[in-house]
Simulated assay, not measured.
Amino acid sequence: MKLHPIWNDYPQLQPELTQTIKLMENSIQLKNKPVKKALLEMIGAGGKLLRPAYQLLFSQFGPEQDRQKSVALAAAIEMLHTATLIHDDIVDDASLRRNLPTISAKFDNNTAVYAGDYLFVACFKLMSGYTSSLRSLQNNALSMEKILSGELGQMEDHYNLSMTVDEYLANISGKTAELFALSCSVGAFENGTTQLFAKNVSDIGHHIGMAFQIIDDILDYTQPKTEIGKPVLKDVRQGIYTLPLIYALQTKRESLVPFLEKKERMSETDIQEIYRLVNDLGGVTKAQQLANTYTQKALKKIDKLPSNSANTRASLQQLTKTLLTRTN
């Protein structure tokens, strides 16, 4: 399996990321061969592996350097992430993920539910086999609860034309930022750092995750379908209103509401007009500014990490800055 090009600049991470993918593949022991094949294809489809990478980087700050454990936990976290993607695709009725047919589109929703559930089981099997205490398992379970709360919050806000920035931020705090926070903190804690250090690292992960999701939502309004691997603005048709649109609504509500009130009946012309208006009304620019604010918060905390791990700290700074300017 070929790693995503983002890792060309991080040769020190490439061996462990490759091991992470191999361990994920080896953990898929389903008897159902078509579903097993679909899961393996999804794992090998070129995901960025950002959460495992942050886990591996922060694990290097601990005095206990058990790299086998770190790789296993990285694999568990990525399987957890992949499981949530499969279930998201069912809820969103998505047909594409990473430019490949989703499991729900390729088979059916029932099969996709079981495939996602299987990855949850595989994740917890790895976690239970390698964590040094129940704390990491407890944190994992609490993170799952927060992720679900974020998803439920987003569902409750479908077609909510009065949705606020704070409500959006609360949803993505659970939906996306929580798993980044877990990835960073479990890497540090399981390699012997203090709980206080792990909490600080969790905050860094949270800021990174918030910036990541905001940028992800910006890409819907700046990149074509072929670049991001999913239908552009499908979220809008489904009533999922993200930060660029929320900001644009605050600026000139009357221009956008007539299109949004059509809901699923929006035409391609309507979608293109929403795309144009969100950009012209400054929604994208304001969202980029907030993503930069979260990134700067993360970078300031990274700057204060121990200087005896200067190379790791430099990699974290570079990677975090890169995420702010990504185009896919």
Rank of each mutant, 00 (worst) to 15 (best):
residue 72 A to P: 03
residue 292 N to T: 08
residue 158 H to W: 01
residue 325 T to K: 15
residue 126 L to D: 00
residue 309 S to T: 04
residue 224 P to C: 06
residue 244 P to L: 11
residue 312 T to M: 09
residue 300 K to F: 10
residue 277 L to S: 14
residue 40 L to K: 11
residue 91 V to H: 08
residue 263 K to C: 00
residue 287 A to G: 06
residue 5 P to Y: 11
residue 88 D to I: 10
residue 95 S to K: 08
residue 209 G to D: 01
residue 304 K to P: 07
residue 159 Y to V: 13
residue 117 D to P: 09
residue 123 C to I: 07
residue 276 R to C: 07
residue 6 I to H: 15
residue 157 D to L: 14
residue 248 A to V: 10
residue 53 A to D: 04
residue 64 E to C: 03
residue 15 P to N: 10
residue 112 A to P: 03
residue 263 K to H: 07
residue 181 A to V: 01
residue 155 M to C: 09
residue 246 I to R: 04
residue 142 L to G: 02
residue 211 A to M: 05
residue 326 R to W: 01
residue 166 D to R: 08
residue 197 F to P: 07
residue 118 Y to R: 13
residue 89 D to Q: 06
residue 283 G to W: 09
residue 122 A to G: 12
residue 115 A to D: 12
residue 235 D to C: 06
residue 128 S to M: 03
residue 210 M to D: 06
residue 50 L to T: 08
residue 292 N to W: 12
residue 38 A to I: 08
residue 32 N to R: 04
residue 205 G to I: 05
residue 215 I to W: 00
residue 199 K to P: 01
residue 85 L to H: 06
residue 51 R to G: 06
residue 82 T to Q: 02
residue 282 G to L: 00
residue 243 L to Y: 01
residue 136 S to W: 01
residue 3 L to K: 13
residue 25 E to Y: 11
residue 91 V to A: 15
residue 200 N to Q: 11
residue 205 G to L: 07
residue 218 I to F: 09
residue 95 S to N: 12
residue 17 L to C: 12
residue 151 E to D: 05
residue 147 I to N: 15
residue 62 G to R: 08
residue 42 M to N: 13
residue 85 L to K: 02
residue 191 N to G: 02
residue 319 L to A: 07
residue 324 L to T: 03
residue 175 K to D: 05
residue 204 I to E: 00
residue 140 N to A: 10
residue 274 I to V: 14
residue 2 K to R: 11
residue 319 L to F: 01
residue 203 D to Q: 15
residue 299 L to P: 11
residue 285 T to G: 00
residue 234 K to Q: 02
residue 313 R to T: 15
residue 116 G to P: 02
residue 272 Q to G: 01
residue 197 F to R: 07
residue 156 E to K: 12
residue 218 I to N: 05
residue 110 N to A: 12
residue 196 L to H: 12
residue 213 Q to S: 08
residue 13 L to R: 08
residue 216 D to P: 14
residue 251 T to K: 08
residue 317 Q to G: 04
residue 240 I to H: 09
residue 97 R to K: 06
residue 80 L to T: 00
residue 188 A to Y: 01
residue 47 G to C: 02
residue 294 Y to A: 08
residue 227 E to N: 03
residue 165 V to F: 13
residue 13 L to W: 01
residue 36 K to E: 07
residue 267 S to D: 06
residue 301 K to L: 13
residue 32 N to A: 07
residue 45 A to L: 13
residue 237 R to G: 12
residue 59 S to N: 05
residue 4 H to E: 14
residue 116 G to Q: 03
residue 35 V to C: 03
residue 13 L to D: 02
